[in-house]
Amino acid sequence: MQVKQYLIRRLALLPLIMLGVSVIVFTLTRFTGSPVGIYATPNMTPDEVAALEERYGLDEPIPVQYAYWLGGLLRGDLGWSGVSVAPVTDVIGLKMAATLELALFAALVAIIGGIALGTIAGVRRNKAPDHAARFFSILGASTPTFWFGLLLLIPFYLWLDWFPLGRSTPEIFDSIGHPTGLYTVDAAISLNPTAIWDSIRHIILPAVVLGFGSMAIIVRMMRSSMVETMSEEYVDAARAKGLPEKLVIKRHARRNALVPTATVIGLSFGFLLQGAVAVELIFRWPGLGQWVTGAILSGDQATIMAYVLVTSLIFMLVNLAVDIAYAYLDRRVVLGS
């Protein structure tokens, strides 16, 4: 009941925060110059360009321009995406789905791998598994995503040709319906084995590359909190009750070690969205990152602003989810205080 109230309050605050974000995004983007370049062609005269600016209201003061833009935003009009040669709202859904899918799989890799490795390392402190996990986490934290991506691509794509680039094989992608927009999920729903295999084959490598850095952080956090909870008295008390060691670790030590780890997991999701830009470029993944890179290179301001808005929204929603998970894990937390 308390969770529900908290959720409503936070969701009610969301539009306000988004409004603030939109002001900042718009102002900062406009400082980089006029977006007219997207609509102009190289052989236009200055007069023609000025006429274009007037037509789109680009000669007005910035606050007025912001009001126009916000009005459009509220009507569901995010402007024209020069890089996609289509309205932003027409493409953003597809791009977002692609990136979300990639980030979710990467998060899955990072969370499952991170918790499992961190737990083993913490329980078997200073033994071989611990050294291995620590080495691995230092490696993960210090390896640049793009470099690691290339490192995997060379054997698995170039030499062995096990995993393809891109997000899908177009013919297979088109052969199934897309109710959720997440290729793997849609393929699973369609029960089409070819599509399922195609979706998995495409996502494995980029998800591993993207998740690796976050996994390293989660391993470290999980390890150190496991070391801490394993020396808590309630763990000994659980043993004194006669519980098997496996249960002692799972139900008593690990559960409590997840509390501090949950925060790190939430933060690392922001890290994933950021890393997705490089991963999408390397793996030709048609998501937000690849989209915004093109937009930045060509000064496509409508696309850039849409990107920032969407990623901040995702980030805030993820943080909200983490707060709630945190309260569920740590019963002493009072939400909203």
Binding site: E232, E233, Y234, D236, A237, A238, R239, A240, K241, G242, L243, P244, R251, H252, R255, N256, V259, L329, D330, R331, R332
Partner: peptide, 23 residues
């Protein structure tokens, strides 16, 4: 393990630390 908690049991100095906070 079969003996612990069944034939020998233990109470600890600080009950605040000996109970699992999340169960």
């Amino acid at each position: 393990r079969a003996t612990r908690g069944d034939r020998i049991a233990m109470i600890f100095q600080d009950p605040g630390k000996a109970l699992n906070p999340s169960l």
